[in-house]
Design a binder for these strands. Sequence first.
DNA 1: CTCAGAAATCTAAGCGCTTAGATTCTTACT
DNA 2: AGTAAGAATCTAAGCGCTTAGATTTCTGAG
Lengths: 350, 350
Amino acid sequence: MRKVTVYDVAELAGVSIATVSFAFTRPDKVKAETLRNVMAAADQLGYVPSASARGLARGRTGAIGIYSYDYLLDPDHDKPATDTRTPAPDGRLFPLYADEVQRGVQIECRRRGYALMLGGNRASDHLPHVIEVAGRVDGLIAFAGALTDGARRQVTARIPVVELGGLERDDARTVLVDNESGMFDLARHLVEQHGHQRFAYVGELGTEEFKARRRGFERALGAGGITVPDVVPAHAGDDASTLRAVAEILALPQLPDAIVCDTDQSALAAIVALRTAGLRVPDDVAVTGFDGILAGRLATPVLTTVLQPMEQVGRVAVEILAGAIDGRDDAGPALPLTCSLFVGSSCGTH
Amino acid sequence: MRKVTVYDVAELAGVSIATVSFAFTRPDKVKAETLRNVMAAADQLGYVPSASARGLARGRTGAIGIYSYDYLLDPDHDKPATDTRTPAPDGRLFPLYADEVQRGVQIECRRRGYALMLGGNRASDHLPHVIEVAGRVDGLIAFAGALTDGARRQVTARIPVVELGGLERDDARTVLVDNESGMFDLARHLVEQHGHQRFAYVGELGTEEFKARRRGFERALGAGGITVPDVVPAHAGDDASTLRAVAEILALPQLPDAIVCDTDQSALAAIVALRTAGLRVPDDVAVTGFDGILAGRLATPVLTTVLQPMEQVGRVAVEILAGAIDGRDDAGPALPLTCSLFVGSSCGTH
DNA sequence: CTCAGAAATCTAAGCGCTTAGATTCTTACT
DNA sequence: AGTAAGAATCTAAGCGCTTAGATTTCTGAG
């Protein structure tokens, strides 16, 4: 089953390969009758143009890559397919931030006629994983933290890169979300609508995003003339650390009115911990999260949180990347995307 | 920013391009010192090998494609990214069958070092969408029904194709799920464990899968000597049709003991309809589904259903495809993957 | 010190397409 | 009929890599 090429089609149609190429790429340049002949020949032979040859000749592949963390694919899947009997761990049941963003990317790629390449090959001995992806595409979207500085430098030397979140850099464009305002609005809601006075803050300051959330929190409390509590440390994605944080809060001389968590996942774990301790949410203490994941919307009580525009992040990233690929280097840094307050019932029944 | 090529690296390292190529692909064939030099030069220049050139020279791309339905990306997204304010419709909040399968594909691709190409370009005037994808990959995974006969013929002429579900064909391999046994087990459970006698069946017979489910149902009832009810028609994904079906059932002279729906989505809609009519599930009537989607597990009552091995479907598909790509045409049709009964509380409290 | 054989490297020919620029065929006028 | 301008088609030169097979360099036994 030798592969059918332009040469085969050209021969059958009785034209040159250039004409075949034109027939597919610029049909208006070809006489109607010739076009019909070529297409008939192609159809008869089952011709499928090679994207490799096309990409090489054109200097672009027509594809965009998305690169995220390896750990999104859980580790215990490093075994043959036939072993997979156990269902995925619970955390994975819900679409995560990265999934939602990817969806946005997918939608926008299709709109613009780009193929989407998912971070693919495992790292070979000499090429880091991301380089393998970078070689296949005209532009790369990367989640903050997924790229080492070295890798970013190397990749940006060849193709434009858009990073999602993190710090702004000069070698890559960045899509930012206004975490600070989001958290500000949330905290203000707690103060103004619910009259909460004593707060606890559970989370971390490990990335720009988390720092911004904290800033928004401090700003809102400051504006209300309320004492800003210290950060009770808990790491995103580590429920045990949230449980410890809640224990710490329960050991305080006085229970706070509200516990503000810097992720939904953490907030949900906190609610469980509080319940276990015999407390009612929100009656005894309010709890809020950040992100807007599905689990929060389905929880009881419905989690009050800050909704991130995840799908939009993905779409905007493609938009910017497409501009960069086409050489339109859209002026200046894009405005950060805005979050919206999502009021559930976990923040108080008022 | 001219692209860095093997030539540049070779020149800087003082070797031929062949040596550069060897350094990357078969490092053991190169003297240690040379290898170091080449790598240093590559690193210094920011060399990223072109997958297009590589694919052309090698005759394979190292990527696998997955092709599903366009309508999984909802239609109202055909507008610029900046307009996206409204959240996705509710149905999309949950990971669907296709998402779970894709996840399995993704995991297995990574394990095997394949890049994954998502159905990409919109159809051009002359090339159907799928052909664009097919030109980029060494093998294609397609959901049943996503491929027209013509497209399948054309694609299979160039690369191996694995279809997920549907009919077995001679030009493409197929990953099958044993829908019949799954539904058989479910129905038997209803009969034997709960002693249900009078049944209603809501669903359709539009595809092989649905027909198999119905067969399993008929077989189980037959085995129990129970009268098999007709299919009350309802279309997957169309909740309104389920509501009509429930109305039809409620109009019967006698309420059945159990309503067996051929999808979870339909079952969940049915539960809502029954509640609206003032009936309790499962006390007044039991309801069951098929698929094992997340929403069912989170519903109250928890939906009794048949769990499809979705992730495994994806993984097995890649496994088969990889075999076909390597010329190992693994003997015979693979066994259908088995479903498992998931007993919630919607089938009766017994 | 020689020389065969192995190891390392190089030369050169593609892989299947795109696309300037050259050539040939049409068409519409004079 | 003759011709110039367009339209249609063709020729041929890459695009950046891989890989036989040729060539050179190294190694160690005699």
